[in-house]
Amino acid sequence: MTDPASLPYRPCAGVMLMNRDGRVFVGQRIDTTLEAWQMPQGGIDPGEDARTAAIRELGEEVGVGPELVTLVAEAADELFYDLPPELIGKVWKGKYRGQRQRWFLLRFDGEDADIRIDTAHPEFRAWRWVEPADLPHVIVPFKRKLYEDVLAAFAGHL
């Protein structure tokens, strides 16, 4: 088996989508039965910049186009998380040990009816708005520190 420490991190972009009430979008992944929620995120394609990837992922996962969001902030640094040992070698074709992510805080300028998780390739089976402080408590445990870091990066805007 490959030593996890020798594997690279998958380049990724993440979106903290905040509504007018200061609450944050979370979706429940369609591919798990866990009661775990997450913010929209996904891989950065070759030649794509992180902000473009974030907007693309938001459309692919939540059905929200760029005309319905306003950029509020971008995290100053990349944020990282490692997969738990039992998932290394099983996800992303075994090529990565975790993710390195660029995070963007976007204000949602639309209405709840504009959110459409029934996209061409659905990733979420349910969605809701949560208080930012609740984010670390609704995410899978191995991403808790990452979500705490995202909250810290955007603390001045929440």
Rank of each mutant, 00 (worst) to 15 (best):
M1C: 05
T2M: 10
T2C: 01
D3C: 00
D3H: 04
A5S: 14
S6N: 13
L7Q: 01
P11N: 11
C12Q: 09
V15Q: 08
M16L: 15
N19C: 08
N19V: 10
R23C: 09
F25C: 03
V26W: 07
G27T: 11
G27P: 12
G27M: 11
Q28F: 03
R29L: 14
D31L: 11
T32K: 08
T33L: 13
T33A: 14
L34P: 02
L34N: 13
E35I: 04
E35D: 15
A36Y: 14
A36M: 06
Q38A: 15
Q38W: 07
Q38Y: 08
Q41A: 15
G42A: 07
G43E: 13
I44K: 02
D49G: 01
T52V: 12
A54H: 12
R56I: 10
L58D: 06
G59I: 03
E60K: 10
E61N: 07
V62D: 05
G63T: 04
V64Q: 05
G65F: 11
E67V: 04
E67S: 14
L68D: 05
L68I: 02
T70D: 15
L71G: 01
A75V: 09
A76Q: 13
E78I: 08
E78P: 11
E78W: 08
L79T: 02
Y81V: 00
Y81T: 00
D82H: 12
L83K: 04
L83Y: 15
L83S: 02
L83W: 14
P85R: 05
L87W: 11
I88G: 03
G89H: 03
K90S: 12
K90D: 06
K93M: 12
K95A: 14
K95P: 00
Y96F: 15
R97C: 02
G98L: 03
Q99H: 06
R100F: 03
R100C: 11
Q101W: 00
Q101C: 14
L105P: 05
L106S: 06
R107P: 02
D109W: 04
D109C: 10
D109F: 05
E111D: 12
E111V: 07
D112W: 05
D112Q: 12
D114Q: 06
R116S: 12
I117T: 07
I117G: 08
I117W: 04
D118W: 03
T119A: 09
H121A: 13
H121M: 09
P122D: 01
F124Y: 15
A126K: 13
A126N: 13
W127Q: 08
R128D: 06
V130C: 09
E131W: 09
P132G: 07
A133D: 13
A133G: 09
D134Q: 14
L135N: 02
H137L: 09
V138F: 03
I139H: 03
P141C: 04
F142T: 10
K143F: 00
K143I: 00
K143S: 12
R144K: 14
R144E: 15
L146S: 05
Y147V: 06
D149L: 11
V150T: 04
A152P: 05
A153W: 08
A153C: 12
